[in-house]
Design a protein around this nucleic acid. Structure first.
Lengths: 258, 258
DNA sequence: ATCTGCGATAAAGTCATACGATAGAAGCGG
DNA sequence: CCGCTTCTATCGTATGACTTTATCGCAGAT
């Protein structure tokens, strides 16, 4: 009997030493504290923050290299890479963005991606879904309706809903984007916390998507999903505007409760 | 004056020891020689193939961990991860797929992704392009027309054409998919080598996309790009069928001339 | 004075070794 | 047959030494 490990969405082990160092460096790069210049905090950080051995530090750097955040050249040093090289859609890189400030432009970009990708995924799901897929999507939807609007279980159900649709699309490449979509979704849900009206109003939209998929109506599923994403973007931007306008610190607090 | 390094598409340095080990392990996992079970070839590989130290081996494993190919649990061992966890859109992971057999389903999946993403990118490019973007796309197109059909320079120009369109879309998240699209494109071009008719016929289609972007006509650019991708998929599948039908070894040979 | 080339040098890369921690297996006793 | 203890394999971390690579600067040649 295989036990699925839902408790660890990212592959990177955060309670391991190299993971902490990797995250620390990553956040420093993403926030822009370290530019595309040389990574200075290496030796400094080693001595000041936590004294880690070269082993742990190097493994952290290897992880960042693999995700495109840094480039190590033998003589010239280990530099932070320009943003174009980052694997922005990597789950870990996205989660590190959570730690940094939520950049509005980037949120817009992610939603734009959702807007292009999710309707297509819904269309494929409608065309290819099995009964098992339906059961999974339905279960997620039920989870969304049962819990309190922004309770942890409800948020999980929302994410599961979208993920299940990606899974039903039967496309491995597309599936990789699911993690990015989920992260975007989680982000927006955390920002929107409190706006119960928006959440409740989105429930029928979710159900309509589900029904279209059950009916194997690709066009309809696509259109309805597109509407869902656009609505989500609008309410998210509204919440973001509020947050930014009123008190920037609030966002940091929300992140903390994650 | 900055020198752009075109010779290294992947961030992972392949002439470094850890890079070689990483690639060797990655290919073993991707081809399926190592299943989702425990990674056995570690110590074996260490002794037989090339005797590398634990340092190099561990750093290779860290890279694979970062890309989702393996999961290292503190004491139970380092296992190959199930395919759902792989970051299939990571440039390195894609390039490792090149080394393995070209799986037809996966090629279809990638083309499907292109079909969803590239028209959208073309639309955004049409809406947001600057004159610099136009110059870049135009230069790439010229490069496609000037060289011989499947010459290296021509293939590069083709890839540059599509990449420039992504860049013009001004969306960082979307931009990350460019590498995946480029890899798919390169793959298909290598498969199609010899089919000069298909290439020449695709030139006007490329020009039409360019013109629509110049005209800032998003709908048209999107539609034309969609047509382009579909045509490309069809000719690629045709070539693939031929290759598979006649001689499988040919593909390996083509890959070698890369 | 500019260019060429070679050596000094700094940083990453590699190796060997050691120790700690613990999950999982093996062995032991009830 | 079951539960406890012990044992071992394997990952994580630390340390020191050596190798490789590429940059920089100086010296010599053109």
């Amino acid at each position: 009997m295989r036990v699925r490990d839902f408790s660890r969405p990212t592959t990177l082990n955060p309670d391991r030493l190299f993971g902490q160092v990797a995250q620390k460096l990553a956040v420093a790069i993403i926030t822009g504290r370290v530019r595309a210049g040389e990574v200075l905090p290496n030796e400094d950080d080693l001595r000041s923050e936590i004294s880690v051995s070269r082993t742990a530090y190097r493994e952290a750097v290897k992880i960042l290299t693999a995700k495109g955040l840094v480039e190590a050249r033998p003589k010239s040093g280990t530099r932070a890479a320009p943003r174009e090289r980052w694997n922005l859609l990597d789950p870990d890189v996205l989660s590190w963005h959570f730690e940094a400030d939520p950049n509005e432009k980037f949120i817009r970009d992610l939603f734009e991606l959702r807007r292009f990708v999710e309707p297509s995924a819904a269309r494929l799901a409608a065309q290819r879904r099995t009964s098992a897929d339906i059961a999974r999507i339905e279960a997620a939807y039920r989870g969304m309706t049962e819990g309190a609007p922004y309770a942890e279980a409800t948020i999980r159900a929302d994410m599961a809903f979208h993920e299940a649709i990606f899974a039903a699309a039967q496309n491995a490449a597309l599936q990789c984007l699911a993690s990015a979509v989920i992260a975007t979704l989680q982000w927006s849900l955390l920002l929107k916390t409190g706006d119960e009206v928006a959440y409740v109003e989105s429930l029928p939209d979710h159900e309509h998507v589900l029904l279209a998929i059950i009916d194997r109506d690709g066009d309809l599923a696509s259109a309805r999903m597109a509407g869902l994403v656009i609505d989500s973007l609008n309410t998210t931007l509204a919440s973001l505007g509020t947050h930014v306008a009123t008190e920037a610190g609030k966002i940091a607090k929300i992140k903390h409760t994650k």
